[in-house]
Design a binder for these strands. Structure first.
Lengths: 340, 340
DNA sequence: AACCGCTTTGCATACGAATGCAAGTAAATC
DNA sequence: GATTTACTTGCATTCGTATGCAAAGCGGTT
């Protein structure tokens, strides 16, 4: 009992017009008389006709599909981003084809090839490093690429991030204002622009006031690595009295290690600051002071850049960085002279 | 400098064969001589040819795209499922087109229509209720539907879940064994099969031993609702000494409310059991006793069912439920007579 | 050499909608 | 009413690949 698909031709016959007429009724911008439109709409309605997107894609070359490459979804920031991106794109008539890719260049390479096969109209990479060679090839193929939450040095790529350097600086200044002097940093993966930028801003922020980080350890955006780093920091001869952690995801592991592994109090023994402000950060168990990434604005900008490029062709790449506020919660002490 | 796509015709010319020959080389199961294959492969390699999936889809009617309908990604269980499903399908040459849908029937309806437009080969719904009317239409259109982590009463649908009834029963027995007598249940949404089944198993489990639940409140799979319910339960004249919460996501809110809102100790004042065993449940801050949903097996079964249906046509619907173990952690007391 | 069976190959067509072109029609202008 | 102008419409073609069909090739057998 296969319910065969209705084609534009069948609608045309029923409406007593040509197939072209039907097509034009369903093609925004094409011209058709009010009478024709009415006839076609009626026939289409009765038959339950819906234009075939695949056939449409063949002709126009536009699939209205955006490829989204994402590394892993354990860090709550990514599901959140995925959900928002998907919704925002859906609202514009686009849909999201998800690809997971580890951060190995070969894997990314393979994924990108797949993506091109699908005739995606654009590619969004969420925190996945892409070789500039690859983006060049995509641009050559006329496929816009926007990197979400990851930049790329010296390459011509569209990138939307928060202002990570400034965020790092804010953390440094805030912790100094709280009276901390021994501040360590468990950084985001040094292979990522976000990790490097946050670190850089943080170090600059301390230096501006004549301080230096007690120690910096690469946490690799990994819970286990961060936990180990915490352990190492706290058992060293001079333990820190505050730790800036490269993202919330690691910060939670750090807090767990401090509390349940080392029996320390937050913020009395050590203050913790994270980065991202994922929903979990606001839950009472963690109540983590953190730099908020303005997800909504980042998503908006990403979608807007993407669609502009699709509609108007690949243009000069832009980089946008949104400033995000520091959200003070109870994982840090009250700043001096700061009122409740 | 648009890098035009290479077509099979160009490869054919370069290799000195017909377009059909090229097609056959790239179509598994088609016949071609070793010599032809070699010539075509070489030419294709040199030109960088890759078959156009869209054109392929037009002819074969197979897109090798699976639509995944998901409600929300805040509950960590879903990103996890999404990631695993996507990987498993990718390994089989399929890709995932993500749709978000709230649980309103109209929205789901609209999403499903969109999905059909994309010629998806199959649809997986993750914890989204689908009217049986809709699944019937999909089957009529020859599109298999598999419901992941949600069943449907009296309808002919493929469904993969864990054994929720049995899971609920296990929780009841475990809590009784721990010596609890006043056991409340903040249930999963009563509009979902998972919520109902867990509740049913739980009640049955208590009744088998001559007990009844102290109270049952629908937590709607929502943190705020669960928090409010916790408050109501604990401030009632007879508060519970244990609460079974319909999923981990709500259980975290319950624990936060108990500890930080009401100043109670877990498990001394109240024991908590969840359902799912998301990664967060194992983090020391929660360390939640919970029923594990065997995600890997569920994903495997889902993918296997899906692909079987795609390859062999829509067959008699199956329902699979995997038993999951109760994972004992510190949110509950030691069971009587149970050794460390 | 003739015959059979099996594999390989090219030709032509189909999938379903969009669109350039030319013909047709209605409205607007003088 | 003639002519210009703007808008509609249908015809035919196109996108890139898969596939039924018939012709051709090949290997072996008698």
């Amino acid at each position: 009992m296969e319910h065969a698909r209705i084609t534009s031709l069948q609608v045309a016959e029923k409406a007593g017009v040509s197939q072209s007429a039907v097509s034009r009724v369903f093609t925004p911008g094409a011209s058709a008389s009010a009478k024709t439109i009415a006839k076609v709409r009626k026939a289409a309605e009765e038959l339950g006709y819906r234009p075939n997107r695949v056939a449409r894609t063949m002709i126009t070359g536009k699939s209205r599909i955006i490829g989204l490459v994402v590394a892993y979804l354990e860090n709550q920031f990514y599901p959140q981003a995925l959900e928002h991106l998907s919704n925002a794109l859906q609202a514009k008539g686009y849909h999201v084809l998800v690809f997971t890719a580890t951060n190995s260049p070969e894997k990314v390479e393979e994924v990108m090839r797949d993506l091109l096969d699908f005739q995606v109209d654009g590619i969004i990479t969420a925190s996945v490093a892409v070789t500039s060679d690859l983006t060049v090839r995509c641009n050559a193929a006329g496929i816009p690429v926007v990197m979400f939450n990851r930049g790329q040095d010296g390459a011509d790529v569209n990138a939307v991030t928060s202002d990570n350097v400034n965020g790092g600086r804010k953390v440094a200044e805030f912790l100094l204002k709280c009276g901390h002097t021994h501040i360590a940093h468990i950084s985001g993966w040094e292979g990522s622009s976000t990790g490097r930028d946050r670190r850089q801003g943080f170090v600059e922020g301390l230096e501006t006031h004549g301080y230096r980080p007690l120690q910096i350890i690469d946490g690799m955006y990994n819970r286990d690595t961060a936990a180990q780093a915490t352990h190492d920091l706290m058992t060293a001869p001079t333990p820190p009295d505050a730790i800036f952690v490269g993202n919330d995801h690691m910060a939670f592991a750090v807090m767990d290690t401090l509390r349940y592994g080392l029996g320390l109090k937050i913020p009395q023994d050590v203050a913790i600051v994270g980065f991202d402000d994922v929903p979990l950060a606001a839950w009472p168990s963690y109540d983590l002071t953190t730099v908020r990434q303005p997800l909504n604005r980042m998503v908006e900008a990403t979608v807007e850049m993407m669609i502009a490029q699709i509609d108007e062709g690949v243009v000069a790449p832009r980089r946008v960085a949104f400033d995000g506020p520091l959200i003070r919660r109870s994982s840090t002490r009250q700043a001096k002279g700061h009122k409740t």
